[in-house]
């Protein structure tokens, strides 16, 4: 499974990682090597193997539906870059 440079650029954009053209070319080659190894793994017969959702052989513990958290807005907002009227302020998002 080969990967193209434009796919690398798209993934970088989705992940909000700035990657310049030289880096993109380098990443394409290195990720291509990793995918080649994955191809090799794909060759193994896994017909009888159940897909693994988690490496730990355990199941999820559930918690009771109880409110256990108190309002700690002041402490959290003390370390936020910008707040107003109890809101966190962020660069304007336009839909």
């Amino acid at each position: 499974m080969a990967i193209e440079q434009d796919e690398i650029e798209k993934i970088a954009e989705l992940a909000r990682i700035r990657v310049d053209a030289a880096q993109a070319a380098d990443l394409t080659r290195r990720l291509g090597d990793i995918l080649a190894m994955v191809d090799q793994l794909q060759a193994a017969d896994t017909a009888d193997v159940e897909p693994m959702a988690h490496p730990l052989d355990a199941t999820q513990c559930l918690r009771a539906d109880r409110v256990t958290e108190e309002n700690r807005r002041e402490a959290f907002q003390a370390i936020a870059p910008a707040v107003e009227d109890g809101l966190y302020l962020v660069p304007k998002v336009i839909e």
């Binding site: 910008a82 809101l87 304007k92």
Partner: peptide
């Protein structure tokens, strides 16, 4: 929830 009223050119976030 995002509030897009003008907070000095920023958006307000209520989590």
């Amino acid at each position: 929830k995002s509030l897009h009223e003008d907070f000095h050119g920023m958006s307000g976030i209520d989590l």
